[in-house]
Amino acid sequence: MTSLEDVSIYLPPKSIPIDRALSDLDVPDAQIRLFQRFYGFSHIRRDPETPLVDQMLATAAGLTALRGREEHVRYVVQALTIPVCAPYPENPVHEVRRALGLDHAMAFCLTQHACATGLLAVDVCGKLLAGDDDPDAMALIFTGEKAYTAYAQRYIVDTAVMGEGMAAVLVRQGGERDRLLAFASRVHGQFNAAPWLPNELAREFDRMYPEALAEVILAALAQANLTLSEIVLILPHHVNHNSWKRLSKKIGMPIERIFLDNLSIMGHCYCADSFINYRTVREDGRLRRGDYYMMVSVGLGATFSAMVFQH
């Protein structure tokens, strides 16, 4: 059974009010006020002086379970929202692999599920490790990207403001905690042009969003043979607060059990949100041994994904 051996995060020290971040991109004042007053966004993290590779290495430095066990790492994976994460000819995942002394490991990127690719990476790495003869074999996954272009820094209309923040995840087979019990994912390909959808399709996506997200959440619960009442927390991706209220009403789950504390102060950190939230609730003591929780994310395009774990 796939499990999370360790999760470490890196948050840039610079916190920027979203009105300043978005005004630099010529976002209309009315849209900025909408994000602040109704969608729950206040600040984002940015670290313009620190290259992506250095951010990734800073994230990996917090993985205590990696120290002294580097020879067991079989894969180094970068889970990306945007296919190109650095200017040519830089190749961050290979640079990080060398810097960490993991030249023996295979390195590759995943991009197919946009902001849900982090969950996809956990599933893919678990399946790859299941065929390894070494019971201690691990995969190292990096999530989160650096907003190095105006395109990458842009907000998603009526959805999210993009910030910087990273998570490094060690995945293995076996393990005593954070065991992956179920994974459900569905692609609604008619929305593949997002975020540049024509108005009619954009309205249809907004209408079906809570229903599609509820579908994968309930499918993952069915796989795990659990009910929603047994889930202690949902660790979400950071899209606007209203969308989570709609989901809460749709599935009948109290909004207090959808962890939204980080949304206002971090923005949407690409694939890293759920893992950053995991570290927060674990450090705050909100997860006890044996608790069931979920990670949930949606990628533009449109991929809806949900995972069930037992802490």
Rank of each mutant, 00 (worst) to 15 (best):
A139S: 15
R257C: 05
A21M: 00
I265N: 06
L221R: 11
A152V: 03
E230D: 15
D47N: 03
M1F: 02
T81K: 10
H241K: 09
P92H: 03
F41E: 08
L228Y: 00
A224D: 13
L221G: 10
M266V: 11
L201R: 02
F183Y: 15
V298Q: 09
T81E: 07
L140E: 01
A107T: 08
F304C: 03
G163P: 10
A222V: 02
V53M: 12
M166I: 00
P51Q: 10
Q310Y: 00
G290S: 12
G301H: 07
H72F: 13
E230H: 11
P92I: 11
L197M: 07
Q310A: 02
G267R: 07
Y278V: 05
V96P: 10
L128P: 05
H311G: 01
L233Q: 03
A60R: 11
S42Y: 09
D273W: 05
M162Y: 09
F259Q: 03
V93H: 11
I156G: 02
T303P: 04
C271T: 15
Y75S: 13
Q190Y: 13
F38C: 12
L228D: 10
H311L: 01
L221A: 13
W196T: 07
T81L: 08
L102P: 00
V171K: 12
E145V: 12
R45V: 12
R282C: 14
A60P: 03
C85F: 04
Q55S: 14
L25K: 09
C115L: 06
A168P: 08
I217P: 00
R246W: 14
R33S: 10
R74L: 00
D132G: 07
C125D: 03
T227Q: 15
L300D: 03
A302S: 10
G301C: 04
L66N: 07
S42H: 15
F142V: 09
Y278W: 13
F304A: 01
R74T: 05
A105C: 01
Q36D: 08
V77S: 05
G126M: 04
L180Q: 04
T159L: 00
A114P: 01
A107Y: 11
N199T: 11
R172K: 12
L235I: 06
P87G: 02
A30V: 15
P198E: 13
R282F: 04
S8M: 06
K127A: 13
P195S: 07
E283L: 06
R179C: 08
A219R: 14
D133P: 00
R69M: 03
L110Y: 06
A168Q: 00
K127N: 14
L129M: 15
K245R: 08
G101R: 01
D291I: 14
I276Y: 02
P12R: 03
Y209Q: 08
G126F: 04
L197H: 07
Y270V: 11
L119T: 06
L260W: 01
A219E: 15
T149R: 02
C109G: 07
H238M: 05
V298I: 10
Y292K: 10
